[in-house]
């Protein structure tokens, strides 16, 4: 399974996103679907960069595989404190401009873009599995 490992730092975002996008492209995903996959991956990664390793350094690992030429599966690993990003409550996307908060919006995008998302804690690792079909049926799947 193709894998990329990196220090969990914002300066590596582009390299990690390029890795994911490259596999989606090789699998024949369309430009818009690749952008959606990049969006979900960025939101998860930025969350790890910001919160997984408070006061210390750590790594992030992405495993990427293609199933049946129509499904991209990402497994994103970190060794931070146990944290299930999927538990973050949805933001109020109808709030007026003065009440608008961005917190939670990134996770909301992840949930909107995936066809399936699963979290598990194994040993010292948080492992988030994101499944993207080539053609997403719009609407929440998780």
């Amino acid at each position: 399974m193709p894998e990329i490992r990196s220090a969990a730092k914002i300066e590596h975002l582009e390299r990690l996103i390029d890795f994911v996008a490259g596999h989606a492209e090789m699998a024949g995903f369309g430009v818009n679907r690749i952008n959606e996959i990049e969006l979900a991956a960025e939101e998860v990664l930025v969350n790890i960069f910001q919160y997984a390793y408070p006061g210390t350094d750590g790594d992030v690992v992405i495993d990427c595989r293609i199933e049946d030429h129509v499904r991209l599966i990402l497994e994103i690993w970190d060794n931070g404190e146990p944290f299930n990003i999927l538990d973050v409550p949805d933001p109020d996307v109808t709030a007026d401009i003065s009440d608008r908060e961005i917190g939670g919006l990134g996770v909301f995008f992840v949930k909107e873009m995936v066809d399936e998302a699963r979290y598990r804690r194994t040993g010292n690792s948080n492992i988030l599995t994101l499944v993207f079909n080539n053609q997403q049926s719009r609407g929440r799947q998780c």
Partner: peptide
């Protein structure tokens, strides 16, 4: 513009609020 994430929206919102 090809791509925007929640970080991009945050930047726009910050500017919109400041200008408002």
């Amino acid at each position: 513009l090809d791509y925007i994430s929640s970080a991009g929206l945050r930047g726009i919102l910050t500017s919109v609020k400041r200008l408002k």
